[in-house]
């Protein structure tokens, strides 16, 4: 079901979503995106450059936040502009009880999305 332009008002909030981020997700994203910066998979390296631990690719967080938009509009092909500012890192420790990458509107690691979509 595709959202119609006439159904949306300025200021409308998109539904909050929570996304799990594990080391496995980062390894897979590194391969798919071509971003093999070791801060995203090598704990020793991450700490050696002053990071608390491995951190998620910003672009992985942006991709997850983008799902909030495309799932909401129902038309993944109608995104005209999508921008984010990365304001805090998503730290991903080596455990399966991974931290969560919240969508817009939550405190903690956060991404500001400024999407505009068609329809």
């Amino acid at each position: 079901m595709t959202l119609r332009h006439a159904d949306v008002e300025v200021g409308a909030e998109l539904p909050e979503r929570t996304f799990r981020v594990r080391r496995l997700d980062l390894v897979r994203y590194a391969g798919a995106s071509g971003d093999f910066n070791p801060i995203h998979w090598n704990e020793r390296f991450a700490k050696s450059v002053g990071l608390p631990d491995v951190i998620a690719h910003g672009m992985f967080t942006m991709a997850e936040a983008g799902r909030v938009l495309t799932d909401w509009t129902g038309d993944a092909g109608c995104v005209v502009d999508y921008s984010v500012r990365f304001s805090a890192p998503v730290v991903v420790p080596d455990d399966d009880e991974a931290p969560r990458s919240p969508s817009a509107g939550r405190s903690g690691p956060r991404t500001t999305t400024e999407p505009s979509a068609c329809s």
Partner: peptide, 17 residues
């Protein structure tokens, strides 16, 4: 120094998908 690079912001502007 690539090891000190952090992603600050990102945007996309599309004419089509």
């Amino acid at each position: 120094d690539f090891s000190r690079v952090v992603h600050g912001d990102q945007s996309f502007h599309y004419s089509r998908p």
